[in-house]
Design a protein around this nucleic acid. Structure first.
Lengths: 312, 312
DNA sequence: CATACAACG
DNA sequence: CGTTCTATG
């Protein structure tokens, strides 16, 4: 592939900034050739664990970028087809009283839990929809300073904890990177504590691409929210506590597998994306892991859903 | 028609408030029967003046309620068909730098004038598009306190002044009625002064329905913006200076002829409207008046356009 | 109900 | 680019 074309593409696809001008452009050279995008196709679901057990738990996580708009775009139809046991939602951007009836009534999920931002309306917010009632459900991570924005729900099931999270974005100009770092510390401590009691499944929009393989343009995004060294080290530190990035564990070399594409610059059609949505597991759950899926064709948000298959 | 149905309809159709509860409803009686709406069909254009002269000047005025959205809804297509000599626009809600190219380039109107709100972006704003270049164009009414919101453009032509105006709304709770009254005084003085120099044509959204005949629900709106005694008297005082409401002059008894319908409660389909858009003329222009039209079928705003035909 | 804005992503 | 909010009508 021509070097020039490659270099220019690198500047594309950062989620928050729009640094479209690559070094070539600055030096006044020719505009880039539109490169044929390298797409990613998720392989067929693997329905058995390494131990040969059949999958019996399916969890889906989706950053819907505004629950009400997403419902109007028939997001729920996709969920009904996917039919997970638990459906975790991030960025509902919706006060509890404003929830669409279509999702509040959904009989497939009789047990529904909502965590909404307390101060800012239409900001953040996560939810968990369960077919089976959890033993216990809690909101936040037990620290005042983190628990007003509707970012975490924890459900305890007989053999595991399920945590869904919408991790704070470091924002343009990294104005919230400092806060993000204290979040990372406290969230890690919270998860470590849970993990000492029961195996843990963490899912959601963790707002970081861990390694260069996890986004299209690592070079151009090292100073941008979602790919700073600080955020990446935060994720590494989490894994160092004994957790596993299930997708990367199963597909260590898989490039071009992303879960988020900015709405800008036709990033999705060019697959200029980021992997920001994860299933992170306690190591002890690896024997039960069947598959970790990226449902890249599901539309309705700037993120796509991800699905975990376990044989417990 | 059943009295009950009539009474309930009266509460509908005020532009800003939503006082849907009529007295019957309060007393807990039965809900209203949906009444067959009384529509208004504008008669064919009359193309000769009382003196038998053929119309040779066509002016159209339209409150577009957001120029950019209105352009997307193909408002310009309608204008091209109507093909007036001058097209006056109110509520552009658009900074000059944000004007759509489609209208900025429009070759049919080589002479275009824009008055935009200086402080609040996307608020108020008027424009005038002319086929023939005016002798002179001015903005505002010459009083600092009124001239920062892009409400008035005055164009001088050889035989008349043309003023297009977007008169300040008294707002919900009539919070701006006091200001509106001082506006009415100053605007009247401005027009009177012009009229002493040359015959005057005033067009635009004058934000008042003059008499009970000029809106569907006069009873329910006497305390609402657009039909308070203060605003109505302001309009009467203007006419008393020697001006004529051209539509009412030609059609003194015509009911159900409106130029504005709130987007709420399906007011337009029920023709629950207000006449807020006018061509007001110096008395001396009556001999040239051919017709004053309400283009009630033109869509793209909560107001419809009005057109004046003169034989000068 | 609909067009604007700002904040956020 | 697209969702939410608020102000304005």
């Amino acid at each position: 592939m021509p070097k020039r074309a490659k270099k220019n593409e690198e500047a594309l696809g950062d989620s928050e900034k729009q640094s479209e001008t690559g070094p070539e452009k600055k030096r006044g050279k020719a505009a880039k050739e539109p490169e044929a995008p390298i797409l990613y196709e998720d392989p067929p679901d693997k329905l058995v664990s390494v131990e040969g057990k059949a999958a019996n738990l399916k969890i889906t996580s989706w950053n819907v970028d505004g629950l009400r708009a997403w419902v109007k775009k028939n997001g729920l139809e996709w969920v009904r087809k996917e039919d997970p046991d638990v459906f975790c939602i991030q960025e509902t951007k919706c006060a509890e009283k404003a929830l669409p009836a279509e999702i509040k009534d959904m009989p497939e999920y009789p047990h529904k839990y909502w965590a909404c931002s307390e101060d800012k309306e239409g900001y953040s917010g996560v939810a968990m929809l369960c077919k089976v009632k959890p033993l216990n459900v809690s909101y936040g991570i037990g620290k005042e300073e983190h628990d007003k924005e509707g970012r975490v729900i924890t459900a305890e099931f007989p053999s595991y904890f399920l945590v869904t999270a919408y991790v704070p974005n470091a924002s343009r100009g990294l104005v919230r990177l400092g806060y993000r770092q204290t979040w990372d510390v406290d969230f890690r401590a919270y998860l470590k504590d849970l993990d000492q009691r029961k195996p843990l499944i963490l899912c959601g929009d963790l707002n970081v691409s861990h390694q260069e393989i996890d986004l299209k343009n690592p070079k151009g995004n090292k100073k941008n929210a979602g790919f700073t060294p600080e955020e990446r080290e935060g994720f590494s530190a989490l894994l160092a506590e004994g957790f596993v990035d299930s997708f990367r564990h199963l597909y260590p070399e898989q490039q071009y597998a992303y879960t988020f594409w900015t709405y800008m610059m036709n990033a999705r059609s060019k697959n200029v994306g980021w992997r920001l949505d994860y299933f992170v597991l306690s190591r002890t759950l690896l024997s039960a892991l069947c598959d970790s899926k990226i449902r890249g064709t599901a539309m309705g948000s700037d993120h796509c859903p991800v699905t975990l298959l376990l044989a417990l």
